[in-house]
Write a protein that binds this DNA or RNA. Sequence first.
DNA 1: GCTAGCCCCCTTTTT
DNA 2: GGGGGCTAGC
Length: 804
Amino acid sequence: MEMPDPELNPPQAEAVAHVEGPLLVFAGAGSGKTRVITYRIANLVARERVAPWRILAVTFTNKAAGEMRARLERPDMLGAVAKDLWVGTFHATCAKFLRLYPEAIERTKGFVIYDGTDQKAVVTRALRDLDLDEKRYAPKQVLGRIHKEKQEGRGPEEMSLDSYLDDAIKKAYVRYEQALKAANALDFEDLILGVVRILEADKSGQYPVEVLQAKEALEKKFDYILVDEFQDTNTIQYRLLQRLAARTRNLCVVGDDDQSIYRWRGADVRNIRGFRRDYADAKVVKLEQNYRSSKRIVSSALAIIASSATREPKELWTDNGDGSPVRVIATADERDEAACVVRAVKDARDAGISPREIAVFYRVHAQSRVLEEALRSVNIPYQIIGGAKFYERAEIKDAIAYLRVLVNPRSDVDMLRIINTPPRGIGNTTVERVATYASTQGFSIFQALERLDDFAEDVGSAPKKRLGQFRELMRGLINEAKNRPPADVLRMVLAKSGYKSVLDAEDSAEAEGRLENLAEFEGSMHDYATEAQARGEEPTLEGFLERVTLQSDTDNMSEQEKITLMTVHGAKGLEFELVLLTGMEEDMFPYRNQEPRNAEEMDEERRLAYVAVTRARKHLVITHARQRQIFGTTRLGVPSRFVGDLPPNVIEHLETPAARSAGSAGRWIDRGSSGGFGDHTAPTSSRPRTGGGASAPASSRSWQHPQRGAAATSEDGGGWGAGPSVHRKPAAPARQPGERFVELDEDAGGSHGNVRLRRGMPVTHERFGRGEVLQVVQSSDPAVVAFFPGWGEKKVLARFLRFG
DNA sequence: GCTAGCCCCCTTTTT
DNA sequence: GGGGGCTAGC
């Protein structure tokens, strides 16, 4: 078992060779981070003779974990001994440990993990039980708050009560926790928090022996801990790491503050600074050489991230060649954009680029449909990551609910889901009665059914009979499920519950689709069984269910000859030869729904754009549309401020014919000298490229950098709603990055700047004074028909109005 | 008790 | 545009 002799640059080698004590690695995009982590692990095992099972490597996704393990298992790395490493996500790792000591967190062996939908169902019930108005306390909001508290490591008792609503939220939190415990269930946060609580138990005598035993085992468990994507850890995860590493302090964290894109779900970049504070003696290594992308791509990325407010000082650079220009293509609308993507993909394929090396990114899933349609219509194979999730389809959730009840009959969320699915004459009223009886007696639904006679007077004789039949069905299934392969259990459940026959009888395309999905689901159970056996594990229903809940969309990415469509978030950690970044318009990317973004949110959008751009190795194509239909409305779009940030000397502006005829003046622009694949966008009629700054002629598509400098100062969207823009040229028909656009509702609404318009909304016009919107007129320069007292109905351009 | 239709809302999403 | 949740009416 010899260490490979990798070619590492000096900082990489430094990080790999570091053995004892804390280590902080700043790993710029494409700087060979994965390589450093794997080599470091190999070094620990092969050279430092550390037992592999005493090393924990935490990754961001299961896929990343699988790849890391696969690399380490290669014969030229560690080979078979790598199997003993603990490699996994925070959640999978904690679940694995808690399965060993479920009593320490007041659960039993078969505990289930509730996903977001299940969690929401529990909260909704809790709110109902507490008689809290669902309007005032939206389940989603309350759940969000509970998560936040948990991510910060606070139970209901430690909650800070800031507003008058918090009292109720605290009650809901308490109830939620009770319900999970009663159901022998955990949510995602519980996995982390549970382990932290074990580790933080003291010997004061108030903790049961199970907890102290688990604590002792866990404290001794790991000698070396490595964490990838550290910038996206949250408070509780960082606390977990600190506790796990308390004994040895051999904690190595790897991250890049510029790629922190999960603040909205609790991730805290400040953990990086916290690490420096908490481990003042930590060795700090910066990986700044990018091996992935061309110079043009790297400088584009740097230009985007440069104006981010808080950054660790570092400079990404590359030795790679200039590469082909970054193409920025103006398109007429989302269909034209999709057509443009199709052409680019075809050209790339013709140029010999493998489809698996091509990715199409967008900011929100809603953008994917049009792209999918376009690709399908020309038979370009694609895979789409995320979006309508397979496991969230009703029939799959139903099947999972049945399976989970078999493993864990106390799981009420699941019982409530299947008790009348397929319809078996047990209506809401009956279900509510059972649920009420159960909760007042402290029973689970299933336990309540076992005591059906005790509350028989509450339900009529017919419902009682049906409840009895359902109970017998479930008893039978539980019995027969024992010692059967998971896929067999599923087939049995679908047959005996009547689920399959109901779908069979329906004879509709929709039912057909559901049956296909269930067949696919069964296939995934077979896959799981095969994989488990390959690892030398017994395939179990519990194991399968855990995998289903803890797996991510990217985990299912295939290596087929297909191009990949995904959100920018999904693209983290990946790389492609060609990246097509679509929808680069203000308010699409940076995305904004209703509220204006604050500076922090804008910074996160910026980092997201940085992540998107740095995924590309050789070619980067950025598209934007002048007009876009999304969420049922048409928006007029101006190029994203991030496009405006790109250095003029690396980009090439192009325009589709449709964009040209639809939009303002402008022509195909092509330097002719551009490398890269096909030149589909380049009719020969070209005029000199606009470049060199603000002196570009106003009539051309000169928006690439008309207001450099100004844009940087209005970073948080200060121009929005703050009256006429401070950094745009109002006279030019060509719109500027950062300029406001108008969103039009079908007949009566829309938004202008950060204002969402409705019919009847008050507006103010400089000459006509205050009025009321009657109609919105969609055109390249949108207008409204409004009624102004004293003037009557007037059609005025939206950009001359103030709203309110 | 069931279901058709209506209304509302809409980031990103791991796990 | 489309999915999910709720209501009203059968």
